[in-house]
Computed example of a mutant assay.
Amino acid sequence: MQPSVHVDVHELPSLAGTEPVALLPRLTSLLQDGAAVKGDTLFPRGRGLRSRYVCRGAEGFQDCIRFPDDSWLIISDFPVARTVGQRYSGEDVVKFHVKLSGVTPIGLSTQEHMVLAGPAAFIISQPLGVEKWEFVLKDNQESSVTVIYRRSHLLAWFDEQCSPMSPRLRSIIGPESAKQAACAPVHLSPMIVAVARDLLQSPYQGTLRVIHAEAKARELSCMILNQLAQGATDQVCDVVLSHRDVERLHEAKDILARNIIDPPTIDLLSRRVALNQKKLRVGFKVVFGESTFDYCQRLRMERARELLDAGETSLVRISEAVGYAYPSSFSVAFKRYYGVLPKDVRGRGRSLTPRRARSG
């Protein structure tokens, strides 16, 4: 889930006077230059390159890997010593970006700016001729994975008879979106995090490293595309979230976290954060991967478990601490969530997993 990060774009260094660069030719040039460097056996020559960074005694790296179909994978894990910005010209590309940590403000000439702050996932479409600027902010650990495709390559994956695109997916990568930039948040599922970590911590070298990277990059892309495809069935496709909307959703999440005993209703919460109820309900699910009710219930049950682990023996006190008027109602809710009654786990240090996580 994406943390609430506020960045004043007017305080970022000016990029006036800098020329926009074309990313893919730049990456190709890096590989060609790197192929002449001897002694680095991490990748076969011309297939990948590792750039190494050192900041205040901490080491880091960025891998650039090119696949046979001219798609790219960029794996970054390095400390950011200073804020750096760059302008990029539009090349009609689509990026799948998973950021485990770090802060990257971006701006597209046809869309309001956004702040990509980890942990979070995004899909970014940059059409031909649409310029993008982005910064990496200092004093952060940039840990991210980005898969880059040409739009035409992605469109070839879909067939209107066998695998048609959902309306939400079409609005981002479809032919009719070729002139409209987009940056949409994607739910950061545990499986997406696991694939990103596999790429960041790959144990392989040489050709095996490239094969492993391509397999994981495809898997990551399929997960994100599948989310966007399924989004059409839950009213996500017709809700567009701006950077300001996402900030208000984080404000709503903070309000709920502070009021688990007596959480505000959707109507009251929507008025407090100045979002309409539909955008609040659907947007909360898109950004955080769970409904407002499920979020509050999870916090209540986790708090109850903490009290039980700490040795609290009174179900009355635990019930009151998590917003239940009657211990019997709390016990039913606890069993529904964890599969066991609270009296069966008090002080035993028993490992519990929510039923939903076990079944999913």
Rank of each mutant, 00 (worst) to 15 (best):
S125I: 11
M223I: 05
A215Y: 07
C55L: 05
R218K: 10
Y324M: 14
G206L: 09
A36Q: 09
I172K: 03
P175E: 12
V193K: 03
K279H: 08
S163K: 01
V7L: 06
C55T: 15
A213G: 07
R26F: 11
D238Q: 14
R151S: 07
E160T: 06
K335C: 12
R303K: 14
T233Q: 05
R168A: 12
M114S: 13
L30K: 06
A357N: 07
R218W: 02
P175N: 06
W157V: 07
R56C: 11
Y324D: 11
D92F: 01
G174T: 10
N140W: 07
S171Q: 09
L208H: 15
G174D: 14
F288V: 01
C64P: 00
G85K: 10
G107T: 12
D254N: 05
K253F: 00
Y337E: 00
V186C: 14
E160Y: 02
S177R: 10
V246Y: 03
L137C: 11
E134K: 08
M301P: 05
V316D: 13
L249V: 01
Q86A: 04
P327N: 05
T41M: 08
V186F: 04
V240K: 15
V145L: 03
L308T: 12
L308F: 12
G323W: 03
A357V: 11
E251L: 14
G289S: 01
A196W: 03
Q111F: 03
P127S: 05
K216S: 11
D238N: 14
R305K: 13
A121S: 13
V195L: 09
V5R: 10
Q297P: 00
Y338I: 10
G85F: 08
V37P: 02
V286F: 02
S166H: 02
N140S: 07
L24K: 07
H212P: 02
V273W: 01
I173N: 05
V103F: 06
T41N: 15
P203Y: 10
Y338V: 06
P342T: 10
I148C: 01
D40C: 10
P68L: 04
F330W: 07
E112A: 13
I172Y: 06
G206Q: 11
G102A: 15
R209S: 05
D159G: 08
A304P: 05
V7S: 03
V195E: 06
I173P: 01
T353N: 05
W72I: 00
P263G: 08
S29A: 14
K99W: 01
F61A: 09
S359L: 12
A35R: 11
L154C: 01
F61S: 12
S221F: 10
A310N: 13
A196M: 04
Y338D: 10
R272I: 01
T41V: 12
D294W: 00
K253I: 00
K285H: 06
F158A: 02
H243L: 08
P264G: 04
Y295P: 00
T18C: 07
K278R: 15
V340E: 12
R336I: 07
E302A: 04
S125R: 13
C64S: 15
V282R: 07
L31W: 02
A120D: 05
L24I: 15
A257H: 00
E131Y: 03
H243R: 09
V287Y: 01
L280Y: 02
T18Q: 09
Y324Q: 14
H113F: 13
R168L: 15
S270I: 00
G46P: 01
P175A: 07
D262P: 08
R47N: 03
V282D: 01
E176Y: 04
